[in-house]
Amino acid sequence: MSLAGLIARYVVLIVMAVIILVPIAVAAISGFKTTGQVRANPFSLPRSPIWTNYTDVLRSDSFWRQAGNSLSIMLVTTLLVLALASSAAFVFSRFRFSGRNLLFTYYMLGLLCPITIAILPVYLVIRELGLVNTMWGVILPQVAFQLPVSVLILRNFFMAIPQELEDASYVDGGTPFQFFWRILLPLVRPGLAAVAVLTMVVSWNSFFLPLVTLNSERLWTLPLGVMQFSGQYSTDWARVLAFATLAMTPAVIFYLFAERQIIEGLTAGSIKG
């Protein structure tokens, strides 16, 4: 490639990277300024960093409570998705019975029904079940809507495991459950990891479902907290951006450590599906 071409290529990529990174950096840096400084010089570095915006948030009960709620909902959601999706994918990949394809199609129809569209109908069922304003009112719908893509990803991983392994397990007198638990699952750890991180990111960032389901502030998750906080301190941008930065930090750190699995999880379902 010509040198000019290479330089042009880098210029475009770097400009795009700057456009992506600057807003995030501005948010994080603004937390170290006073609101006056933020307003007057939004893109400048602070002369001497101010810690109170961050420490105030970190000292508040509400931030930690919301982070704890987000974390519990995320962990329970992920465990349930892994358990339910892997057992369903096991059946769809290793058993033959009449109606299997029909059932699988039924499952995959869920891919066409994002939770945003179904939010009111789901809310009404949650209410019938008496789960409004409970953690389960968020967890169970999240699990249900996460199942189709997870089943799809795991089924593809399961189908790649050689039949001979399964035959050997049964010849040795193993039950299907033993084959599933002791042989199949350990072999598809990358698939389980992809499904887990995908579910974790979706759950951590979930907003619409908690918004309609959780009324009491005690149960709020971080995205709800960010929205409420930015409404409450609408003009105090330094404080709001400090809160937003702290809310996004876990996701960013997690992403930097598990980038490969996250990208695999987020794209595998869509490429295969």
């Binding site: 995030i24 990208i263 987020l266």
Partner: peptide, 29 residues
């Protein structure tokens, strides 16, 4: 590096994204 950076906003929640951009798009700052 570019892949990591380009994908980064996708792991932020839409709420955080909206708050940051509401700040950047203010009328007087």
């Amino acid at each position: 590096f570019f892949r990591t950076v380009f994908f980064l906003p996708y792991v932020l929640s839409e709420v955080v994204t909206a708050v940051i951009w509401s700040f950047l798009l203010q009328p007087n700052s």
